[in-house]
């Protein structure tokens, strides 16, 4: 996915006052002790012969910073590998980054393989270099959302939280 890093979410390096750091560490521990409840789990990766992974890595990192568990599957995955990963990982969604122009083929195949595995409720979305005129066709085949160049990571995180965080799974 092509995305601009959201500066607001990148404040981990800033020094913070000790008491609030203690408080957040304590609350994180408390949260984890509860078993963490159900986290948003999703697959993020690339398929096809497209080696440009800077964007998808930034998106994976940004979604983790937004508190999600992101299973990053890496480059050149076959649609079968991606669908099988979604099944084994019990992912609520699959986000694919495609910059090669093969989006119509790959998204269709991944959607088919997900449906074959009984994963019709897994939300498929993506981004990359995808011409606007192809978006309606993608949506028709079951791609929930397509993000274009210049999308902020915050927008993607908001979408994923809203779409996958509803406790429907």
């Amino acid at each position: 996915m092509v995305a601009r890093r959201n500066n607001k979410s990148n404040n981990l390096g800033k020094s913070s006052s000790a008491p609030s750091a203690v408080r957040s560490a304590a609350s994180a521990l408390k949260r984890d002790a509860d078993g963490g409840g159900r986290r948003i789990r999703l697959i993020v990766g690339k398929s096809g012969l497209d080696g440009h992974d800077r964007g998808v890595k930034i998106v994976a990192r940004a979604l983790a910073e937004a508190g999600m568990e992101v299973i990053y599957t890496g480059l050149r995955q076959t649609p079968e590998q991606i669908a099988e990963a979604a099944l084994q990982e019990d992912a609520a969604g699959v986000g694919l980054s495609i910059l090669s122009g093969a989006h119509l083929t790959i998204f269709r195949r991944v959607r088919e393989l997900l449906d074959e595995r009984g994963l019709g409720d897994v939300v498929l979305f993506g981004g990359g270099i995808i011409p606007a005129e192809d978006v309606p066709a993608l949506q028709k085949m079951g791609v929930d959302r397509v993000f274009g160049p210049g999308t902020s990571t915050a927008e993607i995180a908001d979408y994923v939280r809203g779409r996958l965080g509803g406790g429907t799974k």
Binding site: S24, A28, D32, R39, A60, E65, E69, V70, Y72, G74
Partner: peptide, 15 residues
Amino acid sequence: PTSPFTGGAVLGDRV
């Protein structure tokens, strides 16, 4: 590892 700050994680072993 899970982030101690956000509770999120990048799980990369499937790569």
